[in-house]
Design a protein around this nucleic acid. Structure first.
Lengths: 346, 346
DNA sequence: CTTTTCAAGTTAATCGATTTAGCAACTACC
DNA sequence: GGTAGTTGCTAAATCGATTAACTTGAAAAG
């Protein structure tokens, strides 16, 4: 095991002080009045031995780890993994690394993760917060650590926020179903008081009220096995014979719902229309293809990074921003019984 | 911004030396003969102020970062994100954190990432290597840094390896297609010399040879846009009219293939059978459902961690292991024209 | 000729831990 | 009473960087 070369090894080898080497490495040669020849000499040598600074030492001294903590619900969920991918890619270019962790939307796990991140001197947090960690985030803020909330947020906290217009997304989806001839629309969502879910419900409710329709609601507890979810959805469908369309509040609920509908041998979109919240590449490939409210994943990621970098680089007393991004309704076969698929039948 | 309490703050406050505090924190109280009262006193105080050690300082001193680098092809690919999730979860319990990065299977990007990881003093690497980074990994080995290769590997390197039996997986899939009455089976794969792809091809070839069939091969360059891939697959299908089944070498090739088949209005499994390599939760939900060779994701992840932890904790001269895990063929509708779906038709 | 200014570096403290070597005080034993 | 052993703790070096403060010699200014 070769010992890595340190800045001291370099300084000894070249017969200069480590200060000089440090200045050169950090591009402060001009500023600190190091001669061109010295600079060249050091740079050449560094190149030759392939010196790489020890970030641990650097971080210890400067107090900056150049690590951003990313806390999501579940990194294996396509929505979050896409975001993780983009965030990772972009922050990397700026010299930051990402620690990420899945919270499972669990309070204790989240609290614990924040602790671990703090031990690691993470510079800032991009976080889709689990319920019940408001105080922990407040603590971060009090300690001057930048936080960007995304996907959902605690409104009582003075942080930057990137979210989508959940209410509008759900509203548009339900209206779309009405316009396509569906009359009794159900909403299957998570048993959750988090804003993103609450807003999707509000959007649903608003659309229903406008039409004077009846609310048909199913709440699934968080973290349920897919099979159990499917079973519950089947029961829900059977108990509501008149229901002819469903809006699903998350992508995996839509998947479980699809399974339920398949098992009940109900035809989509003829007997039952459906729209999912949060689109997926595969939705276009199902037969029938599945309509969905698409989140602007790229934009969410980029805005979250942008805000985080602003926090990290600009003056402390920046005003916090809240970005609300628009969703897009991707209309496909599953929600249109009076168009394309209708034509096929006739 | 409150300054975090350090071990010195504690020692000063309690009027003891920082050595003593350190011993207690690291559970060496008995070993280092610290009295019970002193231990209790320190532990109580630490609890009270919520002290958290600075891992940067710790790492600097000990030379261990307790960080494992995970390099995958693409973190937003379901296969890799599932693995990332499991690895993250399990290593976390052991006090390790994960840095991960997507290589895009790109040589330069991978080399660069290894550099960055080294700066960060990553303790070990779990890596699905991109082509052309054999020397860089060898360098890691020479420097005594543990490496576990997974999914694919360079056979010239003395590292632990976790892979699946790609050849057998592909062989079984093709044989299955033959058994279900398909006679002319194509193979759509990536233009790649990496072992995992080479082995899948070998398995295909072996099965074809046994039956005395004809090889029908399409190589798609890596990193192609899905639309272009779909176009190429369409052309391939049209140029090979006799071909009645296809094995796809990756999950996203299967998706592009599905799109191509759909656009050509060819019926599955009647006119064309198909099997994907690498299963996906959604495959069971397509109509028809898609058969696939499933990788034991959980086991791959667990073995990779196990081997890494062994490297990290056991004596240096451990013998490297190569684990070859079995795949499972999940038979669904897309590959059976003479069974369930056949019955429906008759 | 003295004082300033400037160029080109260097010294040494520091970040927050770990760890080796050692010190004082007490007990035990012959 | 002298020596050895034990108990309970501490001093100080160290990891590899950064950086404020200082030095030194030469040129410029007065």
């Amino acid at each position: 095991m070769k010992k890595k070369t340190s800045i001291h090894d370099i300084s000894k080898e070249l017969g200069v002080s480590s200060t000089t080497v440090s200045f050169v490495i950090n591009g402060k040669a001009k500023e600190k009045r190091i001669s061109m020849e010295m600079e060249k000499k050091i740079l050449t040598y560094i190149q030759k031995v392939g010196y790489k600074p020890n970030m641990m030492a650097k971080s210890l001294r400067t107090g900056q780890s150049k690590i951003i903590g990313l806390m999501v619900e579940n990194i294996s969920d396509p929505f979050f993994s896409s975001i993780a991918r983009i965030i990772e890619e972009n922050t990397y270019k700026l010299g930051y690394k990402i620690f990420h962790s899945s919270t499972d939307n669990d309070t204790d796990k989240s609290k614990d993760l924040i602790k671990v991140f703090r031990e690691r001197q993470v510079d800032g947090y991009i976080i889709a917060p689990a319920p019940g960690i408001e105080e922990d985030i407040q603590q971060l803020i009090d300690d001057g650590i930048p936080v960007v909330q995304f996907d959902r947020f605690f409104s009582g906290l003075d942080t930057d926020v990137v979210v989508i217009d959940n209410q509008d997304g759900a509203y548009t989806a339900v209206k779309h179903l009405f316009e396509n001839g569906y009359t009794s629309i159900g909403f299957i969502t998570l048993e959750s008081f988090q804003v993103q879910m609450a807003d999707r419900f509000k959007g649903y409710q608003k659309a229903i009220k406008e039409k004077g329709g009846v609310k048909l609601l199913l709440n699934i507890p968080y973290g349920m096995e897919p099979e159990i979810t499917t079973k519950k959805i089947k029961e829900f469908i059977q108990q509501n014979k008149g229901m002819d369309a469903i809006l699903f509040a998350t992508n995996y609920l839509a998947i479980s719902g699809l399974m339920a509908i398949k098992e009940l041998a109900i035809s989509i979109p003829q007997e039952m229309g459906m729209v999912g919240f949060d689109d997926n590449t595969h939705f276009a490939l199902f037969s029938p293809s599945i309509s969905a409210v698409a989140q602007p994943v790229q934009e969410i990621s980029e805005q979250a990074i942008k805000l985080m970098i602003q926090c990290l680089t600009e003056n402390k007393k920046r005003k916090r921003q809240k970005m609300v991004l628009k969703t897009t309704l991707n209309v496909r076969e599953s929600s249109q019984r009076n168009s394309a698929s209708q034509l096929k039948v006739s």
